[in-house]
Simulated assay, not measured.
Amino acid sequence: MDRLQSAWESHVDTHTDPSGEPYDDDAHQQAEQQRNAQAWDAYETFAGIAARLVASAEQRRPHLPAGTAQPRWGWQLGVLTALTRQLDTVSTTAEEALSDLPPGAGSGSDAYERVLADRAAAAWPLLEEWALHAPAVVGIRAAAGPDRPQLTTRAPAPPAPASVSRPVRR
Rank of each mutant, 00 (worst) to 15 (best):
A27D: 12
A27C: 05
A27Y: 04
H28K: 04
H28A: 13
Q30N: 10
Q30M: 09
Q30W: 03
E32P: 00
Q33G: 07
Q33C: 05
Q34I: 04
R35Q: 07
R35I: 04
Q38G: 02
Q38M: 11
W40S: 03
A42C: 00
Y43R: 03
E44T: 10
E44P: 01
A47P: 00
G48T: 12
A50R: 00
A50K: 02
A51R: 00
R52E: 15
L53A: 08
L53R: 10
L53H: 07
V54T: 05
V54Y: 02
S56R: 15
S56C: 07
A57Q: 03
A57R: 00
A57S: 09
E58Q: 15
Q59Y: 08
R60L: 12
H63A: 15
A66I: 07
G67K: 03
T68W: 02
T68C: 08
T68F: 06
A69H: 04
R72W: 10
R72H: 12
G74T: 11
G74F: 01
G74A: 14
Q76E: 06
L77T: 08
T81V: 04
A82H: 11
L83S: 01
L83V: 09
T84N: 13
R85K: 15
Q86S: 15
L87T: 02
D88F: 06
T89F: 09
T89E: 10
T89W: 07
V90R: 00
V90G: 01
V90H: 03
T92G: 11
T92F: 09
T93W: 02
T93A: 12
A94V: 00
E95V: 06
E95P: 02
E95F: 06
L98C: 07
S99C: 02
L101N: 05
P102D: 11
A105E: 14
A105L: 07
S107W: 04
G108A: 08
G108M: 01
D110R: 14
A111M: 07
Y112K: 06
V115C: 01
V115A: 00
L116F: 05
A117W: 03
D118F: 04
R119N: 06
R119Y: 01
A120F: 01
A121G: 10
A121S: 13
A123L: 09
W124C: 04
W124E: 10
P125E: 11
L126H: 07
L127S: 06
L127K: 06
L127N: 02
E128S: 15
E129N: 08
L132Q: 13
P135F: 05
P135V: 01
A136R: 01
A136V: 04
V137D: 03
V138N: 08
V138Q: 09
G139A: 03
A142I: 13
A142N: 14
A143G: 10
A144G: 12
G145D: 08
G145M: 05
G145T: 04
G145A: 08
P146Q: 13
D147Q: 15
D147L: 13
D147V: 12
R148T: 15
Q150F: 11
T152P: 14
T152C: 06
T153L: 14
T153E: 14
R154P: 00
A155P: 01
P156R: 12
P159R: 14
P159S: 13
P159D: 05
P159V: 13
A160K: 13
P161Y: 10
